[in-house]
């Protein structure tokens, strides 16, 4: 297990390094010189020069950049006067994390449940219904489902608050809109995995032991079927987190996504790149955690590596 963790950690670190290196060179490829545009105050410009060491040779700049990141410093915003990316993250990330965690939990539980229901009723009404929900969920983007929910539940029915983030009733629509796609993906995956496992020989063995259908399903089928679903938790987290860009816009949630989109629209490249680096590193870390969870659940991985 220790060897497995170290292996995953090494891969994560290499990935993180590749990511930040890409970011560093992309900054240098940016059209024109965004740091020197007229909108930037001298004060910020001085900060930028200091931060990136822009007057020094490129390899020194690269080292400075890496050192800054190691210190947990993601750079400056061009627009928000003298504000660092860290300050923006500190202020906005809690909202995004709150929304994201709700969505991951909801998507996983609801998706897995839907997949199990579908697989156990294969080719019957419940299966068709669950898979219809799933394929619609995969096909309807969050920026469609979000406004649709607002239109129906807030504007027309007046059941839920239209937007903002001030309590549980405010979280329902954003969470649902954000998680629907991932929920659907996991439901489809869980169903396929359940149907795959049910044809495995060890299910025959379990039946031959005289176990009841309930015991076979829970102790043998679901436990093995859930493994491939866990592997997508990493990518799903990534999808949900990038999905917050859109959902936060729609529901006026003061999270990171809102700043991100604003940054793009205001051509605040420095903010966008800093935040992208942060997102990327966060997701690499999330992937690492998922790998560890996977290793804990699947004994084959734990010992093989």
């Amino acid at each position: 297990m220790v060897k497995y963790i170290l292996n995953r950690l090494l891969v994560s670190l290499i990935t993180a390094w590749v990511l930040v290196t890409i970011v560093f060179f992309l900054v240098r490829l940016l059209p024109g010189d965004p740091f020197l545009s007229e909108k930037v105050t001298p004060e910020i410009k001085a900060n930028m020069m200091r931060y990136y060491g822009l007057d020094k040779p490129i390899h020194i700049q690269y080292v400075t950049f890496l050192q800054n990141l190691l210190k947990g410093d993601f750079g400056y915003s061009l627009r928000y006067k003298n504000r660092t990316v860290n300050e923006v993250i500190k202020q906005a990330f809690p909202y995004s994390a709150d929304l994201g965690i709700r969505a991951v939990i909801f998507a996983t539980i609801a998706g897995v449940t839907l997949g199990i229901i579908a697989a156990l009723n294969r080719n019957r009404t419940w299966d068709y219904l669950a898979m219809f929900i799933a394929i619609v969920g995969v096909s309807v983007p969050s920026f469609v489902i979000g406004p649709l929910l607002q239109y129906v539940f807030a504007t027309k029915l007046n059941l839920l608050p239209v937007s903002q983030w001030k309590g549980f009733s405010y979280t329902i629509m954003p969470t649902f809109a954000l998680s629907l796609g991932s929920l659907a993906l996991m439901a489809r995956l869980m169903r396929a995995s359940m149907l795959d496992v049910v044809n495995q020989d060890f299910i025959k063995t379990a039946k031959a032991k005289g176990l009841s259908p309930f015991q076979i399903i829970w102790k043998h089928q679901v436990r093995n079927a859930i493994l491939p679903v866990i592997t997508v938790l990493g990518p799903v987290t990534a999808t949900l987190l990038t999905g917050t860009f859109v959902v936060e816009q729609i529901f006026a949630i003061p999270g990171l996504g809102k700043f991100y989109v604003l940054g793009i629209q205001n051509l605040d490249y420095s903010l966008v790149l800093g935040m992208t680096t942060f997102y990327g590193l966060f997701l690499i870390a999330a992937n690492f955690v998922v790998d560890i969870i996977y290793g804990l659940i699947d004994p084959r991985i734990r010992i093989a590596k």
Partner: peptide, 21 residues
């Protein structure tokens, strides 16, 4: 491929778009 795969797809695409216009 493993390493590129570990970087979220959307992040790369956004970065590229910021640079490419």
């Amino acid at each position: 491929i493993d390493i590129l795969y570990a970087i979220p797809y959307m992040i790369i695409v956004i970065l590229m778009m910021v640079v490419l216009g």
